[in-house]
Design a protein around this nucleic acid. Structure first.
Lengths: 191, 191
DNA sequence: CGATTCTTTGAAAACAGTCAATCTGTGTGG
DNA sequence: CCACACAGATTGACTGTTTTCAAAGAATCG
C-alpha cells in the first residue's frame, strides 16, 4: 500500500532512500470500509490522509439536516480538514469512505516534522497546496457564474472518471443542486 | 510605502536586517489610480502585488458580458492570479483598483528567489496560502449551502469593513447574486 | 427475495433573475 | 455655482429557474 504513496512522491520529487525511510516511518497504513468514518464533525482534525485505493468524501450537515459535499478524494488525493488542522478548532466536517479504501495516515506533528527535515517534501506540499487553491477558485468561479446545467457540464469535463463512480445525488450535493434538478438536467442534455 | 509591507512581514515572521534588504531590493512601489488596471484578461500573470493602501479587485467577464468578482484585496492583502502564475497560461482575470492605491509589486522570479533564500519568508508564504485555501473553502461552503440572504449575512459578518467601502452591486457580483436581488435582501432584513 | 439506496417524474411553490423605469447622490466641466 | 452626466441603488411587474413535496420506478446488496 505504501508503494502507491512512494510512487506518487517519486513522480513529484526526487528523494534519497533514507528520506523515503523517514517518511515511511511516520506513515500509518489503514483500511477503511465503505461507509466507515475517519473523522466526525466536532472532532479536532489531527492527521492527514492519503488515498492509495478507494475513495473518501468530506461533507457537512447544514441546519436543515441536509448533506453538502465539500470534497471527493479518490486515489492519489489527500483528505483532511485544513481549517481545523491549522486552527486547532473542532471541524465542521465529516470524512467517510464511499468505497472500501486503503489509506495512509500521517499525524499532523509528524507531517510538519518531515516538511521541516525534507525540504523537497515541503516543496511538494506547497505545490499541492497551490494546486488545491486553484481548483477551489475554479469551483468558486463555476458556482457564481454557471447555471445548473453548466455546473454539471463543468463537473463532467473536470472529473469524467468520477461520474460513474459517485452516486448522482452526491454530485448534486457537491455542485450545490438538489438531486431532482440534477436528474432533470441530465434528462434534458441532448437525447 | 515599503514600511507597510515591512510591518506586515514583521508581524508574521522575524527577519534579520539583511534579509529585509534582500526583500526590499526586489520590491517595486507603484501607485495605481482608481479604475486603473494592473492586469488584463489574456495576459500571463508574472507578478504578485501587495496592497499597502487602497483596494484592488480581481474579476472576469462571462460569455454574456457580465462581470463576476473573484476577489477583493484591501490593505495588507495580496493580489494576482495564481492559476496563470503557476501554469504560465494567459489569465482569465482582470485586476483593477477600486480606490487610488499604493501597491508593492514583486516579479514572480524574484518572489521565488526570496522564498528560496529566506526560509522563513517561504514559511510565511505557505501560511498565507493555507489561509487562502481555508477562506476559499468557506466561500464554497457558503455558495453551495446558503440562500441569497444568508450569503449576504455571511459577507457582512466576514467583511464588515468592506460593506461600506464597496459598491453594493460589486458585493452582489462577489456573492453570485444579481444587484436587484441584493437590494431586495437588504430591504427585507429586519425593518 | 426483501430491504435499501438511488433515480426519476409531476405538480406546485419559492426563489432569484431580467427588464424597464425611476430615484439618488456625486463629481465634472462650463 | 449650476447643469449635466454618470454611477449606483431601488422598485415593480414579469419570467424563468430551481427547490420542494410526494410518489413511484430502478438498481443494488445481503
Amino acid at each position: 500500500m505504501i508503494e502507491v504513496f512512494k510512487k506518487y512522491i517519486s513522480e513529484k520529487i526526487t528523494l534519497a532512500e533514507e528520506e523515503y525511510s523517514i517518511i515511511e516511518s511516520v506513515c500509518i497504513s489503514r483500511k477503511v470500509k465503505k461507509r466507515q468514518f475517519i473523522m466526525h464533525e466536532g472532532e479536532v482534525c489531527k492527521q492527514i490522509a492519503f488515498v492509495c485505493k478507494g475513495f473518501l468524501r468530506t461533507y457537512f450537515i447544514d441546519d436543515n439536516g441536509d448533506e453538502h459535499i465539500m470534497n471527493f478524494a479518490p486515489e492519489n488525493y489527500w483528505s483532511g480538514d485544513r481549517e481545523s488542522l491549522m486552527s486547532g478548532f473542532p471541524s465542521k466536517y465529516n470524512i467517510d469512505a464511499l468505497e472500501d479504501s486503503d489509506i495512509i495516515v500521517i499525524k499532523k506533528a509528524d507531517f510538519d516534522e518531515i516538511c521541516k527535515r525534507i525540504p523537497s517534501f515541503n516543496d511538494m506540499t506547497n505545490a499541492i497546496l497551490q494546486k488545491s487553491l486553484v481548483v477551489a477558485q475554479q469551483r468558486i468561479h463555476a458556482s457564481i457564474t454557471y447555471s445548473a446545467e453548466e455546473k454539471y457540464n463543468y463537473f463532467l469535463s473536470k472529473y469524467p472518471s468520477l461520474v460513474n463512480r459517485v452516486p448522482q445525488h452526491m454530485i448534486a450535493s457537491y455542485l450545490g443542486l438538489s438531486r431532482e434538478t440534477l436528474s432533470r438536467v441530465r434528462k434534458n442534455r441532448l437525447g
